[in-house]
């Protein structure tokens, strides 16, 4: 169930497509273009958006197997109906402290470059459809990984929300996976 914009044209989700022409709510011409859909999710107290096109499915928090020396961003591996895939600890990637596991905790399975990974989030909120005009490409001035992950910002209504860049998440995760097991880091073996 990978959605792309082409499919969403005919689907229920494509509400943005046949938006009413004209000036009914005072929108200008350019805003008749297609809306992009996002899943709202919370990491810590903050809400982020994740492009729905990359999302494969969302599952409850299933048992995670710890993988030693896999890099600290990788929480471990999960069994998604027979496929083993890594789960990324987004809290850690954002530089947050350890939180508590609640019934709302979810793993969002995303696909990127034919690779599947799970993103552990504290909760998911809604599906948002946003006009391209309400999205700004913007890098954040903050330091650390968290601000790195956001390359676009939604200014839908009164809220300003960061949109997570999946390719960034992937590259951070794989960097972390590499650094997690440098030969040098195996120093504890020599001791």
């Amino acid at each position: 169930m990978q959605w792309d914009h082409g499919n969403s044209r005919s689907g229920v989700q494509g509400s943005g497509i046949f938006a009413i022409r004209g000036n009914l709510d005072g929108e200008t011409e350019e805003e008749f273009t297609e809306k992009e859909q996002f899943i709202g999710l919370k990491i810590g107290d903050e809400e982020f958006y994740l492009p729905i096109a990359a999302v494969n499915e969302i599952v409850m928090l299933i048992p995670i197997t710890y993988v030693p020396q896999s890099g600290k961003m990788i929480e471990g591996v999960i069994n998604l109906r027979g496929t083993i895939l890594p789960a990324i600890n987004l809290r850690k990637m954002m530089g947050l402290k350890k939180g508590t596991v609640t019934p709302a905790t979810r793993i969002i399975i995303v696909r990127h470059n034919d690779m599947l990974i799970g993103l552990i989030v504290d909760t998911i909120t809604y599906v948002h459809s946003i006009y391209p005009s309400e999205i700004e490409t913007q890098t954040l001035p903050g330091k650390g990984m968290g601000s790195d992950l956001v390359t676009r910002i939604s200014k839908n209504g009164s809220n300003i929300t960061g949109i997570l860049d999946i390719s960034k998440i992937f590259s951070h995760a794989s960097e972390s996976a590499k650094s997690g097991h440098d030969y040098e880091n195996m120093g504890h073996l020599a001791g």
Partner: peptide
């Protein structure tokens, strides 16, 4: 998965009867 391909000393994962990896 590719991300986990080079984990030292780990050849891969297997799924147990109880579904755990």
């Amino acid at each position: 998965g590719n991300l986990m391909a080079d984990i030292p000393c780990v050849a891969g994962g297997a799924i147990l009867g109880n579904g755990e990896v």
